[in-house]
Simulated scan of single mutants.
Amino acid sequence: MRIFEAFTSDEPILTVSEISRRTGLHVATASRLVAELVSYGFLTRDDDRRVRVGTRLWELATRASPTLTLRNAAMPFMEGVHDIVGHHVQLGVLDGDEVLFLERLTAPGAVINYTHIAGRLPLHVSSSGLVLLAHGSVDLRRRVIDATLHSYTPDTPATAARLRGVLADVRRQGYAYCPGYVHPDALGIAAPVRDARGEVVAALAVIVPNEAGATSVVPVVRTAARGVSRALGAPDAVGQRRDPGGSGSSSLIG
């Protein structure tokens, strides 16, 4: 596992020496383990003997992924939204104290976006993360609110008081609207996706230019999120109902 975790999206190809250094394994041990993983197809080597994660690992992970049903249900709706907005459409889930992005559609010339498939962001900075945080457990909200919050731009909700207010707005409105939270030129809009029990299991979001008129995209995102929810078995009423605590912040920390 340490060997697999040594690879990142920025550095997907490593030498055995780099793997040894990042994992703390002796270079001979790293070399032996890498060779064994290569023999099973979990890692591959290029002509320069550098190493990268193999497609066999991706195949097995995808086949057994608990998110496969969610991605399959969401994709037709994401494609429909993408046809309308022409920028970025993405699907995120809660993983620890971060949002993990399972799927992303984009287009040439689309507005700047820091996310990518299998990428992560802190919950307080992105529209997807704020939806998941707003509908998460009390313990999760307390933990995030009490932490040191990184500010990407002057508009990032990076104080406890500001974040409480934003989360209250998300629950009251039923969506997150985040102008310039991650980058001054980008605006994120996200809505919750629910399962058959009515629990929020994901967030469907778009990233569009941060400019006047972006509010017109909100109904598109909310309608698509409700469509994904219905595909997952959620009753229509779940997507339409007012969230508990939506009239105030009694269910929020502070």
Rank of each mutant, 00 (worst) to 15 (best):
T223L: 14
V53K: 08
L123T: 10
G254H: 10
S249D: 13
G180H: 05
T148G: 08
L33V: 10
Y40F: 06
R197H: 14
V144T: 14
A231E: 15
V111T: 12
I207N: 13
I112T: 15
I19L: 03
I189Q: 05
A231N: 10
L100Y: 14
S31G: 14
L130T: 09
L102I: 00
V89C: 10
V111A: 06
A176C: 03
G246F: 13
L187Q: 12
A190I: 07
L68H: 09
D97C: 09
A214R: 14
A118Q: 04
T69N: 11
A61T: 04
R49V: 04
P154F: 06
G41N: 08
H183C: 08
R164L: 09
D97S: 07
M78L: 10
H135L: 00
V200P: 08
G165H: 10
D243V: 08
Y40G: 01
D83S: 05
T69Q: 12
S137E: 13
Y114I: 13
R171L: 12
H183T: 11
G246P: 11
W58S: 09
S17D: 15
A234G: 07
D48M: 03
R71S: 11
G136N: 08
V53F: 05
D243K: 02
D185S: 11
H82A: 10
L187F: 08
R104Q: 15
